[in-house]
Every structure is written in C-alpha cells, then in structure tokens.
C-alpha cells in the first residue's frame, strides 16, 4: 500500500487515491470536532458558531472573555478545585494498591490468578451507570454518599484496572534475577523493591497512574451519583452546563482540557518508548 507500483492500472490508481481520500475524511471526522472548538472558544459573542468577524479573521471577533469567566466564576473555580483535589487522591490510592497487587500477580505462583484478575479488572468492564447505581445504593447505606472520601474511593476503584494492566505489562519485561542478585548482595526485600525493582518499572507505574488520573479527572457518571453538590467536579459542571444553560465558557474549559490531554498523551508516549527501550524492544 505504501507506494503505488508503476504497473498499476488506471482503476487501481483511482482506487489508491480514492482510498486515501476516504481515510483522510475519516481522520478529519476524528479530529475536526476537537479542533473546531478551539477557535470557537475565543468567540467574542455568545454564539456557538463562527461569526462573520471570526471568518474575516478580524481581531475584533476574538476575545478571551470565556476564559476570563472560567477563571473568575466561583462555580467553575469550585469545580476545578474539586477536580484537582479528587483526581490525585484517587490516583495515589489506585497506584499504591495497584502496583503492589501487580507485583504480587506477576509472581510465578499465584493461586486463582484468573479469578483474581477478573475481579480486579471488573470495574473497567461493568458499564459506568451500573457501577454508579450500585455505589449510590451501597455508599448511602454506609454513609459515604455525598462525601469526598466516597468519590475518591469510587474513582480509585475505577482507575485500578488501568494500573494493574500497565504495571503487569511492564513487569513482563522485568528480569527476576535482578532481585535475587540484590538479595544475594544483602539487600532486604523493601530495599530491593525501592532500589532495584521500582526504578525499572517506574515508567509503567507512571503511565498507569496517568490512566488512573485521567479516568478520575474525566469521570462524570459516578460523581453525579456518589457525590453531592459539594463534590462538583469540572466534568460535572460541564455536564450541567450542557444539559441546562449551555454557556460558551464550556468551550473555553474544553480547550483547556484538550491541552491537558495532549500533555498527558505526550507523557504516556514518551514513557512507553522509554520502557520499550529499557526492555530492548525499541519501537520499529
């Protein structure tokens, strides 16, 4: 596919280029909605479409008004604070428990590994609305509904499968004789873990943590049910904004979030390459 052979017939030539155009259109479909909201967020008016001034690239048509609103409006600021508070807490929990368990799971002898794995992965499989319903029922029984702790615990549970998956993937390439070497040189298991194992699996742990972070940071269904108005996060505020009175500030927030995801994507990509290089499997 990479190049058209010189002997290709006219039909093949037409198909070759038609196929590229089709693929181009699909890529456009994938990326355009995300890119379109960026210029729209600088709209001077409260419209959700390009004004004639914007199309003329008239600086008058653009403004930072919606960003100003985001940074001054107390609702949005409260939501931002909650998001910045909840997501790292949930990530910390998920990474701590998840890494320990992933190390346990990668031991050669684990009784019932399949069943354990199924349970640990299940938060990723069960549709969010079902998890949300169950957590709402159960957490209101035990008094966790409407508390920060409840939301953090729920989000940690959602992030754990990602940590387990990425860390076990990194552990696949981990050479066990290194820990034995450390032990034979007199290091105790804790020291071995922090000095030998941890630095080597760190890329996996960090990218698992990033997955857990983005899961919590983006999550809205669970927080809608398990949280109360006090735990309103950014996605929740956006959800309300979209459902009730749609304000252009949402586009400004969306643009900021796109920037955040680009940052996270780049980090994960760098980490993945580093981890592959360490495993001697440099990307082709």
């Amino acid at each position: 596919m990479s190049a058209l052979p010189p002997y290709a017939s006219t039909g093949q030539r037409i198909w070759h280029y038609a196929f590229r155009v089709i693929c181009g259109l699909i890529f456009f479909f994938l990326i355009a909605p995300i890119l379109v909201i960026i210029p729209l967020s600088f709209n001077e008016q409260d419209f959700f479409t390009f004004t004639p001034e914007m199309l003329r690239l008239d600086p008058e048509g653009y403004s930072l008004e919606h960003y100003r609103d985001f940074f001054t409006n107390s609702d949005w600021q409260q939501a931002l604070r909650n998001s910045v508070l909840i997501a790292p807490a949930a990530t910390l929990l998920a990474v701590t428990f998840g890494t320990l368990a992933a190390i346990g799971l990668s031991q050669p002898h684990v009784p019932g590994r399949r069943a354990i794995m199924a349970i640990l992965i299940s938060p990723m499989i069960v549709p969010l609305i079902i998890s949300a319903a169950g957590m709402y029922f159960f957490y209101s029984r035990v008094g966790l509904q409407g508390t920060y702790l409840g939301v953090v615990l729920a989000h940690a549970a959602l992030g754990i499968p990602f940590v387990i998956i990425t860390v076990t993937a990194t552990l696949v390439g981990f050479d066990r004789s290194l820990t034995r070497a450390a032990a034979s040189l007199g290091a105790d298991p804790v020291r071995t873990f922090f000095k030998v194992q941890m630095p080597l699996i760190l890329p996996g742990v960090i990218s698992g943590g990033l997955f857990a972070f983005i899961t919590s940071f983006d999550e809205v269904v669970i927080v809608l049910f398990v949280g109360s108005a006090g735990q309103k996060t950014l996605p929740w505020q956006m959800f309300i904004g979209l459902r009730e009175q749609i304000s252009p500030t949402i586009l400004a927030v969306a643009t900021i979030l796109v920037a955040v995801s680009i940052l996270l994507l780049a980090t994960v990509e760098v980490l993945r390459r580093r981890s592959e290089r360490l495993r001697g499997m440099s990307p082709s």
Binding site: I214, D218, V220, A254
Partner: peptide
C-alpha cells in the same frame, strides 16, 4: 485521550 465531555460538547 480527550475528555468525553469535551467531545460531547
């Protein structure tokens, strides 16, 4: 990687 709500909005 982009937030679900960003894409929905």
């Amino acid at each position: 990687w982009t937030s679900l709500l960003v894409r929905t909005s």
